[in-house]
Structures are given as C-alpha cells and as structure tokens.
Simulated scan of single mutants.
Amino acid sequence: MEQRKHWWNGKWGRIARRDVFLRVSGDQWYVESRNGGADGVSHFFEYGSEDAALDAVRVLLAGPDEWRELSVRPPLG
C-alpha cells in the first residue's frame, strides 16, 4: 500500500489532533481519518477510484480547522 497524501489539522495533543491519509493499493483507494494522533482512533474507508476517495477527503477536511498538507516521504529502497 502506498501513501499518497497526508493532511493534519494543525493542532497538537491527543484530544485536538486529526489526520487524514490517502492511500492506494492496486485499483483500490483508501482514506483513513484518525483522531488523537499516532495512538488515536482511526476510521477506514475504501473506494474504487481516486476521484471518489478525494471527494471523501474533501468532506473530511471541511469545517473550521486550518488543514495543511504534509509531505509524504518516498519509499525506501
């Protein structure tokens, strides 16, 4: 599975932090919405196209938070 994008709401701490990830594996696209940082609770969504996954990401990023896209590290090797 390859991570394509990562967004963060710019807030620190387990209660306030939210992250959204866009990943792909073959023809399947995955969106992860995580609340609470690395040890937080995640919800996973699966989509058949990149467009559908990006539509879901736009819904998750809607609201008052100041979302920022974080750079994705290229795979090692």
Rank of each mutant, 00 (worst) to 15 (best):
V41L: 14
G37I: 02
W12G: 11
N35E: 09
V24K: 09
V41G: 13
G40E: 04
G37L: 05
S33Y: 08
R34W: 11
R14V: 04
F21M: 03
V41D: 14
N35K: 10
V20P: 00
Y30H: 09
E32F: 03
G13K: 06
W7C: 03
G37H: 01
G37R: 02
D19R: 07
V31K: 02
W8K: 06
K11I: 04
N35D: 07
W29T: 02
V20R: 00
W29A: 02
R17C: 13
W8Y: 10
K5E: 12
Q28Y: 11
G10V: 10
A16F: 05
G10T: 07
G37K: 02
N9G: 07
I15V: 12
D19W: 06
F21L: 06
R17I: 07
E32G: 02
W7T: 03
W12S: 15
W7M: 03
W8S: 09
G40Y: 04
G26T: 00
D27R: 13
D27F: 10
Y30F: 11
D19H: 08
R34S: 12
A16E: 05
G26I: 00
N9M: 08
R14P: 04
Y30K: 08
K11H: 11
Q28M: 15
V41W: 12
R18Q: 15
N9I: 07
F21G: 01
V20M: 01
S25W: 02
G37F: 00
R17G: 10
A16K: 10
R18H: 15
G40W: 03
H6K: 11
R17K: 12
S25P: 02
G26N: 01
R14I: 04
F21N: 01
N9E: 05
D19Y: 09
W12M: 15
G13D: 10
S25M: 07
G26C: 01
G10A: 08
N9F: 05
G10H: 08
R4N: 07
G26L: 00
K5F: 03
G13E: 06
G26K: 00
G36D: 03
H6I: 09
H6W: 12
R18F: 12
N35V: 06
R23P: 06
K11D: 05
Y30D: 04
G26Y: 00
S25F: 06
A38V: 14
E32H: 08
V20F: 00
V24G: 06
R4L: 15
Q28C: 13
K11Q: 13
D39M: 12
I15F: 13
K5C: 08
F21K: 01
S25N: 12
G10D: 05
W8M: 05
V41K: 15
V24M: 10
K11C: 10
G13M: 06
D39A: 09
N35W: 06
R17W: 11
W29R: 02
F21I: 01
F21S: 02
